[in-house]
Design a protein around this nucleic acid. Structure first.
Lengths: 214, 214
DNA sequence: GTCTATAGAACGATAGAC
DNA sequence: GTCTATCGTTCTATAGAC
């Protein structure tokens, strides 16, 4: 990827995070990137493929990291189920350490990826289904085993809430500053990861043992 | 609100849920509602005020319910802190029972409200700040007391994760069907509420006692 | 590979007839 | 209150000069 393409991707992230897919225009993106209007169609083919490229470009390294960490730990444990907290850490930490980057103080990586996951346009839903397939199957198996196979329904609710929490955290990150009256540093990755891992781990354990009266 | 306005609001919810604010056009909305293009500007003034009206129209009854339930329980307890699970139930149950309506099988209420909360346009952020002010202050006080006042940072992280989880659940509701391979009924409000309340309550308790090494 | 110019369609909003 | 017609703008995409 050359310098022009990098500048376009960066401008796309900002524009997408702020305006959504429908509100982001290639004219604004090229203006922000300081390149010509025709550059997007030349380098990426269309608005749609530009946004798909941008999402892949950010998500795929994260998922590779997650799977590597999970498989390394599984190999080391010799087939024994891993502690739940460790698995959740493999999901959360690569995401937040990659997407919160101090050199980018607007958190545009996070916000853009969050927006893309909330996007209902078919081409985006297909993209995410494709990107998340492997990670969902591997992690839900590991989590289910760690919880002692609590059953299909509880595992499904649990996995759902895990992904919902992370989506919310990505989309709403800057609200932490508002909600904490400025006392929490948005760049404190370890603080956020530690608290979020604790939240999700305990939540998941509770879901797997919830007593439904039905 | 007359019949024409109702039809416009309903069409706006669908269009907004699927396309976002930037992608939704008043032409598509009026076409879907079966009314004339000029009807939106006549009845609502502009695209912006139409979307604001729609959000208020759905959220305000929910927040009134939540606050009534909280204050009734507080009066009954005579100033004693309420059990955490009960408070979380007051936040979650009115939201999901109001937004999941069997007569509306596309879950457009939920998805539209979720999208509106993820919207970064200033007029939407202001609207939500205004709508959520009272509820955040009352519930964060109740939650903090119920947890034994764990300190500012932990309360802030906790409240943040509560709202993030609910936002994700609103936006991603239909993924439950995919993630459960069709085994979970999307209209099973009690099942969803029971599991989500368990998840959030346990998560919040864990956050309030997390041991950060910093 | 980068530009200008423009085609062709869709946009929000409104004026004015009925 | 509801319509048609239309203004002025902006959109994605591309053709063709350099």
């Amino acid at each position: 990827m050359n310098e022009t393409q990098q500048k376009i991707i960066e401008a796309t992230e900002i524009e997408f995070a702020e305006m959504g897919y429908g509100g982001a225009s290639i004219r604004e993106i090229t203006k922000r990137a300081g390149v010509n209007v025709a550059a997007i169609n030349y380098h990426f083919g269309s608005k749609e493929t530009l946004f798909k490229e941008m999402v892949r470009y950010r998500i795929e390294p994260i998922n590779r990291l997650r799977i590597d960490m999970l498989e390394a730990a599984q190999e080391k444990s010799g087939g024994e189920p891993l502690p739940l907290r460790e698995i959740i850490n493999f999901i959360v930490r690569p995401l937040l350490t990659t997407l919160i980057n101090e050199s980018c103080d607007d958190f545009r990586f996070m916000r853009a990826i969050g927006k893309s996951m909330a996007e209902e346009r078919p081409f985006m839903k297909e993209l995410h289904r494709d990107i998340l397939k492997e990670i969902i199957s591997k992690f839900s198996k590991a989590i289910s085993e760690s919880l002692g196979n609590p059953g299909f329904e509880k595992t499904a609710y649990g996995m759902h809430f895990v992904s919902c929490s992370m989506l919310g955290v990505m989309m709403q990150h800057r609200r932490l500053q508002f909600i904490s009256a400025g006392q929490i540093d948005l760049n404190d990755i370890d603080g956020l990861v530690d608290h979020l891992v604790a939240f999700i781990t305990a939540g998941l354990q509770a879901v797997s043992t919830v007593n439904t009266n039905s």
